[in-house]
Design a binder for these strands. Sequence first.
DNA 1: CATCTAAATGCAAACGTTTGCAACATTGCT
DNA 2: AGCAATGTTGCAAACGTTTGCATTTAGATG
Lengths: 345, 345
Amino acid sequence: MADSDVQPLTDKPDRVRTITDLAKIAGVSPGTVSRALSGNSLVNTKTRKKIESIAREHGFRPNQMASKLRRQKTGVIGVAIPLGHDVRQQISDTFFMTLLGHLADELTERGFDIMLRRVIPAQDEDWLDRFIGSGLIDGVIVIGQSDQFERIEDAADGYLPMVVWGNHQEGQRHCVVGTDNRLGGKLAAEKLITAGARNLAFMGDTQALEFAARFNGAKEVSEKMDVPIRALATHLSPDRTADEIAQHLREIDGQVDGIFAATDTIAVTCLKELRDRGIAVPTQLKIVGFDDLPIAGQTVPPLTTVRQDITAGAKCLADLLLRRLNGEDTESLVMPPHVIARGSA
Amino acid sequence: MADSDVQPLTDKPDRVRTITDLAKIAGVSPGTVSRALSGNSLVNTKTRKKIESIAREHGFRPNQMASKLRRQKTGVIGVAIPLGHDVRQQISDTFFMTLLGHLADELTERGFDIMLRRVIPAQDEDWLDRFIGSGLIDGVIVIGQSDQFERIEDAADGYLPMVVWGNHQEGQRHCVVGTDNRLGGKLAAEKLITAGARNLAFMGDTQALEFAARFNGAKEVSEKMDVPIRALATHLSPDRTADEIAQHLREIDGQVDGIFAATDTIAVTCLKELRDRGIAVPTQLKIVGFDDLPIAGQTVPPLTTVRQDITAGAKCLADLLLRRLNGEDTESLVMPPHVIARGSA
DNA sequence: CATCTAAATGCAAACGTTTGCAACATTGCT
DNA sequence: AGCAATGTTGCAAACGTTTGCATTTAGATG
């Protein structure tokens, strides 16, 4: 019993966990410590120095969870990636990942942390409201509308700080940043047709909003030009894509002389497959992709594609979100795509 | 005065923000509501149903910040990407992003959220301890050691739930998952030499630990085989890489007949550049890459490369971290790389 | 009907900060 | 010396949950 009463003789550097511990050591009140460490308040320079040095010595860091709870601000932006129209699509999809990377760069620069959430709407109806209402984040960026347009619209009605990467539709209520997919589709079709193609195919899953718009743009042009175009459903799950594309190419063999791929990834796979089948690009068959991923410049022949400026997109997403965090009700931003003519069409 | 006493006649659906609000409506205590919503405790089925229905009706979600603070568990895994040896390298680097994608898949599956933090050690000495001590995360995965080996070692001494993707060194103290880079380097050199190369070059930044190990492996083999090998510093910032590589290729023109690229990305750029310069691969010059990114199969000629199993790596990172969260002091895991012979060597 | 047990709920103290307000100390001024 | 004005600090109440313990209620048993 005596034992337990004895104070250890050594300076017990007893892990300083809380601001209160530190306050005790410094001989001040917790409030003062808090003010000293957050820097912004009026604290005597001497006490501040002292507190800072003790903090450093003990490697103390204030608990952010408590801080965020108290201040009702998290400094965290949620980034949600809904994988709806194609459950097996991985978050590892190149375009999304690249966008996410740039987004991370932008948000970090502005002092925000990022909470990443990959979500499968089919398994979790309530994903967006749950994320928003969690109290974990100050705002949310949704990368890709997938097939969740309505759900996003609903959420937007009661929640300002949300910006979405995706397609813009007349009169929609949520703030979106994205490329003019329809225009992109038009450009792609025009490119193919002026290059001499007379029978087109679109490769992509038109259930996804963005892809549908691309297809519709292309269709508009090809109808005007009296060139047939067909849509060939192509998914993005890494394991399935290649076979699907091979299958499609077998079926359209000899009929189609121009392919508009919904994505550079798809286009590249096409190129590869065509090469294996001995079909010459662009002489026998022309291809236009979409995105202008880094790979596009490296293929043989280099891929003609419709460029989305991912870096600018990320910057805009971050900008708009920050303005919304300040209460502003920002407009959507639709960026014009550009054809990058390389060798494949 | 009377006014303020009058209850509004309409049902005021006064936003229910806290568990206490909800408790008032349901006519029970906050504790009961908490138990009802978290499901796991003993609450009368009838009260539970009632509470759940009220919660649904008002779209109530418990504040996670408060919950996490109280329970001293966050359910969040921090993922840090240090960009040290090459400040201008973007987080958008393909390999890291792919790994991150798979990691997100794995961790989400296990019910964890992900807090992503891109860090530039040169600007923030204290990045790792700050992240660990923030109270925001239950554990941390560091993607890539960059030039931060020592700092990671230090942190590992006092903090169990950390796993790092990177290189393994004899006797190191932090738990790492990664490929046997040295062996990978050996395999690459062997492949080049058996393919007939007699003068090798390594392209990559040997300041990065992983790359250094790859180079050293290659050097070991080439010395044994009496084949010279030189290292050509090549960075990964998207804007710089291409020019640097072009420069290197110009300098070694005619001397070197085998290139070991530290990364598929580098290798692909080499291929492109060589094609532009009219140098035939693999006849005049052989190339072996590293990683086996999806692009590797799509180039012309297809890239011979040393494969790292990213998916398995991500799974292991998640597994080990979870075991560490349970207090286990796990061993590092070094995965053997495999040569994927395609057309470039 | 009195007890006893088990199930369901309420109470109140945490979790670790931040911050408005009050109290105190210091300085300068009349 | 007395007082005002300023500069620093302490106090204590939040932030919104969770949870051990005490209490009540309901149900069962003798």
